[in-house]
Amino acid sequence: MLKMMLAAFAAAMPLQSALAQTGAETEAELPGRLDSYFQMTPETLEGYAPEGNELGMTTQLFSFVGREDLTQRLQENAYRRPACSVLREDGLQAVVEAVGDARVVMINEAHDDPYHRWVIARLAEALAPDFTVFAAETFSNEGDVETLVPEASMDIGWYSGEPIYGRQLRTLVDLGYRFAAYEITQEQRLVDPSEGFMASIAEREEAQAVNFIANALEAYPDARILVHVGYAHLSEVGGEDDDDTSRWFAARLRDKTGIDPLTITQTSCNVESGAPIAALTESPLVDGSNLPDTQRQPGWVDLFLGRPPMSFTDGRPDWRYEIGDKPVAVPEDFLAEEGRVIIEARAPGEDLEMIPVERLMLYPGETLPLLLPEGEWVLTAWTEDGAFGDPVTVSAPSAP
């Protein structure tokens, strides 16, 4: 488990750096960060077999462009974790009951699994209006963070550019949450690479704790806060042998403030085969006590949510159909004969700098469907050279 967490951290850092490197120089040709999505995914799938950090980065980027099916093709066990027995089918209700008077609730995600973002949006709904501030690892923490506007804009962060994360942000905005950034800043990066990887982890976790205290706890002294992190940042204990260099964000936050966050992991367990679950969109509360890491580090997290099985229909995740998204065929004019095309869907009149509700990358010859909420949507298409055809308006039908 520790190796998986470190690999995820290694993959995340180049992506965060890419955020600072993409932007104005390509905006005249490609909106937002589409240029980086093209650059950081393979031009062709034939013979493509990345390993290590490249694999981690690629699978994360595939989720940005609606291609979790390619993630599973590259890494058969991508959405599989150890099987854990179900304690309660109504996992989110169990979480809400466990919150009590906790001021900080911290829940994690795998960066290549948008499903986790759907769950976090549902948790935010369940905690409102008692919780009023949302802090996220993805939020850019450079410049004047006091002006962080709660909106689903492409420039608010890196991971949040993924459409389901965008839908999550829209939910939070509608609920009245205020946003807080706490990620390490460039000015806080002082560790020399020669000091080793664990030193970089320690530097980042310490900065996150310090920034969270300033930008969330002190900025909103009376607020209760929902925190969205990646992977191991919610670990409440140290690493192997309790090495202080690998004490993560949650542990450092508790050490500095005395606040014990309620921590929920979504990245540790799958639902055991054959276990009763309400639906593919319901993460049950599961028993993580038999995982190797908890045997070595008891109490590293408070609650475990098990991920339901991942399956696909027409190349798209089945859970997306279950949340009510409707399959809509990509217009023929948007099917490129050569090279890749990215199709995005937004509400009529919405600016291209807002996170789309759907994004899909197609390779030549592919005809996967778009998955859209009920309503009318404006589709735009892009190749690496820029806009591909004129915008097209489509409708996603209502349920029968």
Results as ranks from 00 to 15, higher is better:
268 S>R: 09
204 R>V: 11
62 F>L: 09
68 E>H: 03
138 T>Q: 12
98 A>F: 01
131 F>S: 09
54 E>Q: 14
215 N>L: 03
351 D>T: 12
3 K>F: 02
226 L>S: 08
337 E>S: 14
101 D>T: 09
277 I>L: 12
165 Y>S: 14
127 L>T: 05
249 F>M: 05
114 P>T: 05
250 A>T: 08
399 A>R: 13
262 L>H: 11
128 A>M: 05
200 S>G: 14
322 E>A: 15
346 R>L: 10
39 Q>N: 07
398 S>F: 01
398 S>L: 06
366 E>N: 07
64 F>C: 12
7 A>G: 12
112 D>R: 04
142 E>L: 04
33 R>A: 14
364 P>I: 01
122 R>F: 00
214 A>W: 01
329 A>C: 02
358 E>K: 07
133 V>Q: 13
95 V>Y: 08
322 E>C: 10
197 F>T: 04
296 R>D: 11
8 A>G: 15
192 D>N: 15
66 G>S: 11
123 L>G: 14
308 P>N: 11
278 A>Y: 00
376 E>T: 15
237 V>K: 15
98 A>D: 03
60 Q>T: 15
23 G>E: 04
261 P>Q: 08
391 P>Y: 07
158 W>S: 10
392 V>F: 06
372 L>A: 08
315 G>N: 07
357 V>P: 05
306 G>D: 07
